[in-house]
């Protein structure tokens, strides 16, 4: 089976005030379709840098990265944007919905950049909002929704272009435990029922417990990589 993510010897060196900082040091990692991977580690461990590279928001200093069998480490900005648009879905800690913009318009946004015709955009956006259970909030503005609801809208937005991989960066970091639990359950449903591949960055063991596999980073290296039994649903 062709892996979704295949990272070989990825190194990232930052230059900070003339001092070079090795954020990632020769990472090898493979994620297969249908996996639900939690990336853990303390701050400064390199887990966020790793997610940015996998999410094609950042480039590795050295090493190769293949996404769904294509080497993407050498692509230019436009090609990277196109892959982000068509193959990747993002969910952020701070939801990152456009302010003063309705839920459905937020969900439509990635399709605008992917060039989906306006009529289809509306229909698909509504479908995805239904899928994450907030269709009734489609005309609400972000400031009229709770954090959990906003994050569900953001998840719907990450789904609209049928991505091969969803990247979630501390998706429950701003939520109370009840909302966090419900959002994690949504991720699990998407993974188990729809077979969507998910890579999630967190530092909370409770959140990581929902994943099938936990990769722990420390000082730019992978400390452990283990498959686990999921927390009971």
């Amino acid at each position: 089976m062709r892996p979704v993510v295949d990272v070989r010897g990825v190194t990232k060196i930052y230059d900070l005030d003339g001092q070079s900082i090795r954020a990632l040091d020769g990472i090898d990692l493979t994620i297969d379709p249908g996996e639900f991977v939690a990336v853990m580690g303390p701050s400064g461990s390199g887990k966020s840098t790793f997610m940015h590279i996998v999410g094609m928001l950042d480039r590795p200093t050295a090493g190769t990265y293949s996404l769904e069998g294509t080497d993407v480490s050498q692509l230019d900005g436009d090609a990277r944007a196109d892959i982000r648009s068509r193959r990747l879905g993002f969910v952020f800690q701070a939801y990152n919905l456009l302010a003063r913009t309705s839920a459905i318009e937020n969900v439509e946004l990635p399709m605008v950049y992917a060039g989906v015709p306006a009529a289809d955009r509306r229909r698909i956006a509504l479908e995805k909002l239904e899928e994450v259970g907030v269709a009734q909030l489609k005309d609400h503005l972000p400031n009229q929704m709770s954090g959990g609801q906003q994050q569900r809208v953001a998840i719907a937005r990450s789904l609209v272009n049928d991505p091969g991989l969803i990247l979630a960066d501390e998706p429950t970091g701003a939520l109370d435990s009840k909302a966090a639990e419900s959002v994690m359950r949504l991720f699990r449903d998407l993974n188990e029922q729809r077979g969507i591949t998910i890579m999630l960055v967190t530092h909370e063991p409770d959140v990581a417990a929902h994943a099938k596999r936990v990769v722990t980073f420390r000082d730019g290296h992978i400390l452990s990589d283990a498959t686990q039994d999921r927390k009971a649903a």
Binding site: L57, D82, S85, Y113
Partner: peptide, 16 residues
């Protein structure tokens, strides 16, 4: 700036 970053993450090209 954050909005621009978000738009780029969602697939907007620099030219867009």
């Amino acid at each position: 700036t954050r909005e621009i970053g978000l738009r780029m993450a969602l697939g907007a090209r620099a030219k867009t």
